[in-house]
Design a protein around this nucleic acid. Structure first.
Length: 271
DNA sequence: CAACGGACCTGCCTGC
DNA sequence: TGCAGGCAGGTCCGTT
């Protein structure tokens, strides 16, 4: 289930198969995603060839010659390449059928994702326009977070999960990065030093990069573009480990709701 | 303007 | 075994 590493893994899995190919057909079986899939998706995109697949935060951008398709996988979405004869599963909502029987199949049980075709510069789209910095880019530094925290009352976990500040840090990786940096998730963001924010940023970059390398996490039903599961869950230090011993010091991992999200930390290692 | 809760959905797990 | 209730990886939007 898509956090940034899963989305990036999907992008990397799909691009070599689809870039340069013509889109032959679009099949919408269930348009009721987070926002309705526009009925003109088909007329917008068919007949064009895919020139690139890029990513902004957790949004995937399918660049065609004249239009761009903005895709988000929500909490339960996945994109896989199948054949048009591959049997449909429940929740296979949309097919983009390319030449040579390459079918990009959008699957999303909870339907929190979206598929939105755009005209013109996709980065001008309201969903993308106000996004914060990319966590793996050099311009994401300790100063980014330290400055963003000033004058705010939020706790640090909510700060790093705010997509208008930095994109792509979801619940799993927020928990993991805070553990790696030794920072308690409930600490007020304003009361963290620039030096500690520098360490947190390094932890975020390390955790996300390691997960991309490992092919993304697998919790329940995530699969990448080739249908392969990810393996990052094998290295999770705190997420979903309530009551289990901390892998660094043996103290039991605690679980607490922060901003209505499950939050896990080691009370000995994180302050 | 910042901060918070609610909303969108289905599936899975737990406990009665 | 069945069913109700709670919870899940995201994030926008409306209300305070």
């Amino acid at each position: 289930m898509p956090e940034l590493p899963e989305v990036e893994t999907t992008r990397r899995g799909l691009a070599p198969h689809l870039v340069g190919r013509h889109l032959r057909e679009c099949v919408i079986r269930q348009p009721a995603l987070r926002w309705p899939v526009p009925a003109d998706l088909r007329t917008c995109l068919t007949g064009q060839s895919l020139t690139a697949i890029s990513r902004r935060g957790k949004y995937l951008l399918f660049h065609f010659e004249r239009n761009t398709l903005i895709a988000h996988l929500g909490m339960s979405g996945s994109l896989r390449i199948v054949s048009t004869t591959t049997p449909l599963r429940p929740h296979d909502h949309v097919d983009l059928v390319f030449e040579d029987d390459l079918c990009l199949r959008y699957h999303d049980p909870r339907r929190f994702g979206c598929l939105l075709p755009t005209v013109g510069d996709p980065f001008e789209h309201p969903l993308l326009q106000t996004l914060g910095v990319e966590p793996l880019e050099p311009d994401f530094t300790g100063a980014t977070l330290h400055m963003a925290a000033q004058g705010k009352t939020v706790v640090v976990k909510n700060l790093i999960m705010d997509s208008h500040i930095v994109v792509g840090v979801g619940n799993i990786y927020a928990n993991e990065a805070l553990f790696a940096a030794g920072i308690r998730p409930t600490r007020p963001a304003q009361r963290i030093s620039a030096a500690r924010y520098q360490r947190l940023v390094e932890s975020i970059k390390t955790v996300l990069s390691a997960s991309i390398t490992a092919g993304g996490s697998t919790l329940r039903d995530y699969v990448n573009g080739n249908g392969q599961p990810g393996y990052f869950q094998l290295t999770l230090q705190v997420y979903d480990r309530t009551g289990l011993p901390c892998l660094q010091c043996g103290t039991r991992i605690r679980n607490q709701r922060v901003g209505q999200r499950g939050t896990f930390y080691c009370p000995h290692c994180q302050h």
